[in-house]
Nucleic acid binder design. Structure first.
Length: 480
RNA sequence: GGGAUUGUAGUCUAGCUUGGUAUGAUACUAGUCUGGGGGACUAGUGGUCGCAGGUUCAAAUCCUGCCAAUCCCA
């Protein structure tokens, strides 16, 4: 392997797909498992997931949601209870057909999602209005067979996610819950991962199979494709009826409940890699970085080493006392230059270099990963590191927002739409609301309706396809 | 769903056409010198050539099937 091969060998602009795969593997976030479509999450990758999990758990708890755990196997008879839902998932379900050598009569699905199982349980647990609302979240994995074109984090046959399932006495309360969750998702993604999202509804065609409607948050990736970042569904009574999730109200009349379900997956990690990474590798937002600050000590001899290392230890202790995640790279066999490149590949937000020159000047060199700027910081200014990290976090979001704006195009003319779609991007195109136009556009441009943003209702324009009166201005894009 | 390409040490790779027991680099281990943007030298370790069959005196190489990966187009 040549020196260049240690790092990422292709440019993000020239070969985006290859670049992405190399970053995932070389930054050691994940590796391929021996089975098609499955990956192994390595500690740095899992740490990012844990960070998201912690943030979401706190917000869920504040909203009265508690965690539970569901088994992975669902009998076919249960999965088939809501017919549209089953038809939607069936092509990608893995089945367990045998226990040892015995064939299983009612074969078992490896959960593609847990609505059917959760609601079977819910119907047992809920009898009275006093049992509601019931709000449980499950951290688990889901399995959906991907026949082709798998990609770490973005499309894998098994993925880590959380699925929340709530039950309410009224439609209004359930719909409020749907929106509350979407808001939590949006804030988490923007504040933690520094990725801007657009929220709104999915079209009838693109909604979750079995839902009354689906709300979603979508982001634009640097290659111009859209990525679904998370969804929150209003299920109405579509599941409560077949699964008999009922309650007796205060007047002792039995009603079907109103339900929601919602989820985000490790796909968010994929989005973060794509949005922030560069030709030198991964770039992590400080909030989710397993290591926020790495210190590289530099010395020429044993005496210098002693002086430098004692200063480094002092700084490390100092930073740790402020809850900053810091690592000292004291590997003696590697040169400083190698370490710089290594930590940049891994995306550590801030690097501190301390050598004999710095000791003399009573200052250290700090290098920001996201813009690769180097500057000097006095030893007495160590308290500033925390605010520097905050500033990095904010600037990363700002930069991403700018790029997203540049890639968003208002469309009034269909010819313009067709000519620009090859370059990718989010296309704000007025739409009459008819499935026919949606399908035609998909057929002719490859773009589908990613999201109908809240507040985009508009009847003063003409449908980009059929020229009839518009209903809304959805975002059309080619998706992942 | 359609197409193209690939699999040899932790990693990258030569060898394959024309069958004869695997090349080089890097990484790893030990040591010496080094150290502010991917260091140098010396000596070592590391391989069921993706898996399973077949052909053959002999298979990384030829044949068949399978598994896995990458990219492009629906």
């Amino acid at each position: 392997m040549s020196k260049e091969d240690v790092g990422v060998t292709v440019s993000k602009n020239e070969d985006f797909s290859e670049w992405y795969t190399q970053v995932v593997l070389k930054a050691k976030l994940a590796d391929y498992a021996p089975v098609k479509g499955l990956i192994v999450l390595r500690p740095d990758g899992y740490s990012i997931w844990e960070s998201l999990k912690n943030t979401l758990d706190k917000k869920f708890a504040k909203n009265g949601i508690r965690n539970g755990f569901l088994p992975i196997l669902i009998p076919e008879s249960l999965l088939g209870k809501e017919k549209k839902h089953f038809a939607g998932f069936n092509p990608e379900v893995f089945w367990v057909t045998h226990s040892g050598t015995n064939e299983i009569g009612d074969k078992l699905a490896l959960r593609p999602t847990s609505e059917t199982l959760a609601y079977t349980m819910y119907s047992k647990w809920i009898q009275s209005w006093r049992d509601l609302p019931l709000k449980i979240n499950f951290w688990n994995t889901a399995l959906r067979a991907e026949i082709k074109a798998t990609k770490p984090f973005l499309r894998t046959s098994e993925f880590l996610w959380q699925e929340g399932h709530t039950v309410h006495t009224t439609q209004e309360e359930a719909e409020r819950e749907v929106m509350k969750i979407l808001e939590i998702y949006k804030n988490t993604v923007q504040e933690e991962l520094a990725i801007p999202v657009t929220v709104g509804k999915k079209s009838e065609k693109e909604k979750f199979v079995g839902a009354v409607y689906t709300t979603t948050m979508e982001s634009i990736m640097p290659d111009g494709k859209a990525l679904q970042m998370g969804t929150s569904h209003f299920l109405g009574q579509n599941f409560s009826k077949p699964f008999e999730v009922k309650f007796a109200d205060k007047d002792n009349v039995e009603h079907f409940t109103w339900q929601t379900s919602w989820g985000v997956s490790w796909r968010l990690i994929g989005a973060m890699i794509m949005v922030h990474g560069d030709d030198n590798g991964l770039v992590l937002p400080p909030n989710v970085a397993p290591t926020q600050v790495v210190i590289v000590p530099i010395y020429r001899n044993d005496e210098g080493k002693k002086i430098v290392l004692s200063k480094v230890e002092e700084i490390k202790t100092n930073l740790e006392s402020e809850e900053i995640r810091v690592h000292v790279d004291d590997r003696s066999e590697l040169s400083p230059g190698y370490k710089f490149n290594d930590w940049e590949l891994k995306g550590v937000p801030l690097r501190i270099e301390i050598g004999p020159k710095d000791i003399e000047k009573q200052s250290m060199v700090i290098a920001k990963r996201y813009n690769r700027e180097k500057s000097s910081l006095g030893f007495d200014e160590i308290k500033k590191i925390s605010s520097i990290l905050d500033e990095i976090q904010k600037n990363m979001l700002k930069n991403a927002q700018e790029k997203a704006r540049e890639n968003t195009i208002d469309i009034s003319d269909y010819a313009e739409f067709k000519s620009k779609i090859e370059g990718g991007g989010f296309f704000n195109a007025p739409w009459c609301g008819k499935l026919e136009c949606e399908e035609k556009i998909k057929e002719e441009t490859g773009a589908d309706i990613r999201v109908i943003p809240f507040g985009s209702e508009n009847s003063n324009l003409k449908c980009a396809y059929c020229q009839e009166q518009s209903m809304s201005i959805p975002i059309f894009a080619r998706g992942y």
